[in-house]
């Protein structure tokens, strides 16, 4: 039977934490590591990408003495390659990691996944504490799948295809060059790459807001969990992860 405590007594929590919280190790090292590498890379990629599309610095003097655009492009490409590696490590960990590493996957063939999706969406709209998950909830998982995985793939394929243009006889071109004729031409590939890039700051905004909301409203240590790996839960909360196999 659930009862409602209001207000929450901080002294009692400090005195008897075990009466309130349990700690669970949720995010393993590769999950946390790739999260932060991705966050850093996406930030660098977005900012350098905007600069590449619209270079604003104008160094004076002889071109031989400057390498502004060239350097920014180098940083963009380097960050892109690091992002790809981090992305692949995370995909490997999808299989190798614990169940929580897989919890963001959209299990669309399971009725329980759809129930969780609907429940989480209404919880957020009703501004209630709702159902706490240790892994991802279905709504969060869908957002990560769409913004990070799907659009991440779009950026990786278009990005590597555009990068491979600098060496048309190279291996990268053999692997990714087909993307350009598929999307029409090089210019359109640039446009799609640029347009999709905007999804990432929008995602970052929503993501940071919702984890802050969850962390403060649910008291589950969500924000610190991506640093420490540990999440907090209360009895009953764990049941909401049952739809995970």
């Amino acid at each position: 039977m659930a009862k409602v405590i209001q207000p929450f007594d901080p002294k009692d929590v400090v005195a008897h934490p075990e009466a309130y919280f349990r700690r669970a190790y949720v995010w393993q090292v590769p999950v946390r590591l790739t999260h932060w590498v991705n966050a850093l890379c996406v930030t660098v990629l977005f900012l350098t990408g905007l600069y590449i599309a619209s270079p604003i610095l104008a160094p004076s003097g002889e071109p031989a003495h400057h390498f502004v655009m060239g350097r920014i492009r180098q940083i963009h490409f380097a960050a892109g390659i690091i992002f790809v590696i981090s992305f692949l490590v995370r995909i490997y960990w999808f299989w190798a990691g614990n169940n929580y590493a897989r919890s963001g996957f959209p299990f669309v063939w399971r009725a329980s996944w759809w129930r969780d999706l609907f429940r989480q969406a209404t919880d957020y709209l009703k501004l209630e504490r709702g159902h706490v998950h240790l892994g991802h909830n279905a709504l969060g998982g869908s957002a990560y799948t769409f913004f990070v995985i799907f659009l991440g793939w779009v950026q990786i394929f278009t990005g590597l295809a555009l990068y491979s243009e600098t060496n048309p006889a190279g291996t990268l071109n053999k692997l990714f060059g087909w993307v350009i004729p598929l999307l029409g031409n090089s210019y359109r590939t640039h446009m799609i790459h640029h347009l999709v890039a905007w999804a990432f700051p929008i995602f970052a905004l929503l993501h940071i807001y919702i984890v802050t909301y969850d962390s403060t409203q649910y008291g589950n240590g969500l924000i610190t969990s991506i640093i420490s790996g540990y999440k907090f839960y209360r009895q009953g909360d764990i049941r909401n992860d049952e739809w995970l196999s």
Binding site: V4, R22, Y25, Y100, R129, L134, R234, Q235
Partner: peptide, 13 residues
């Protein structure tokens, strides 16, 4: 804050 009275179970992870 909703709290269950039943004692906590161990987590899967």
């Amino acid at each position: 804050i909703h709290v269950d009275d039943t004692p906590p179970a161990d987590s899967k992870g």
